[in-house]
Design a protein around this nucleic acid. Sequence first.
DNA 1: TTCTGTGCAAATCTTTTGCATGGCA
DNA 2: TGCCATGCAAAAGATTTGCACAGAA
Lengths: 134, 134
Amino acid sequence: MKNLKSLLEESNLKITPQRLAILKELENKGHASIEEIYETIKEMFPSISLATIYKNINSLKEEGIISEVCLHQKPKFEISKIPHAHFICKKCGKVEDIPLNEVINKNIEEKYPNSHKELYIYGICKNCQKNGNS
Amino acid sequence: MKNLKSLLEESNLKITPQRLAILKELENKGHASIEEIYETIKEMFPSISLATIYKNINSLKEEGIISEVCLHQKPKFEISKIPHAHFICKKCGKVEDIPLNEVINKNIEEKYPNSHKELYIYGICKNCQKNGNS
DNA sequence: TTCTGTGCAAATCTTTTGCATGGCA
DNA sequence: TGCCATGCAAAAGATTTGCACAGAA
C-alpha cells in the first residue's frame, strides 16, 4: 500500500481512494481489464462510477504509472498466409510483415511448445522516428 | 482476382462482389481496418453497408481465409515495470509475464534498433490445452 | 480556499442483430 | 427455386464528455 501511494505522489496526480483501489487491484491480479477492475472495486466501493475508472486508467497511463498490455489499437485484417511476425508502429499504426526469424522461433518453441504462437513487435517505424519525437 | 475467387470457392462461403471487394482491398493494402475497408469499397460500391463489412469479416475469419492482426481482445492493464514479454492465452485471455529472453532481445534489437519494443506471444495456455481442444 | 477528481447522465463510437429483399448456385 | 447474403434500422456494448458537487492539498 505504501508503494502504491508513492507512485501517485511522484506524479502529477492527486491521491484518491479510487486511484489507490485501482492500483491495488492491478497489484493483486497482475493484469486486469476495465470491467474486472470495476467489478472488484464496486464491492467495497459501491458508488464508484465506470467513468471514473476510465478517466483514471487514462490518467495513470499518461503518467506512465500503468501500461496497457494488449495495445489498444484498431484490429486489422490480412489474408491468411504462412506464419510470420508483425511489426506494428505505435504512432501511425502501420503494420509490416516480418519473417519469423529462426532463432526467435526455436527459442519460443522451446519455452511454449505445441502452442500456436503469434509474435508482435510494437515500436516506432522509421518514418515516424524521422518526423517528430516521442 | 482469380486467386481471391478461389479462396471463396474452396470455402463454405458464396462468391459475392462485396466479398471479393473486401479481399481485393486486403490484397492491395496488405493490412486494413474495418473502417479503411469500408471507406475504400464505398467509393466504387456506394450502397454497401458497414454491417455487411462486419458480417463478412467475421465469416472470412471463421473460414480462416483472413486473420486478425492485433488480436481483438479486451485491453488489460498492469503497473509499469521493467520490460518483459507477455504470453496471452487466446482461449481464456489470461496474461502471463515472461522474462525478456536475452537471445530474443538482442535479435530484435539488431533488426529494430532504437525502437521501443513490446513482445506478445499469443498461444494456448497449459490449462486450456488440457481442458478441451482447439 | 483552490483546483482537481468524482459520479451521474447524456453523447458518441463501435459492433451486433433482426428482418425484409435481393442475388448466387 | 432454395437459401445464403445484403442493406437498412434498431439494439447492444464500449468509451468519452459535460457539469455540478465533493474532497485533496
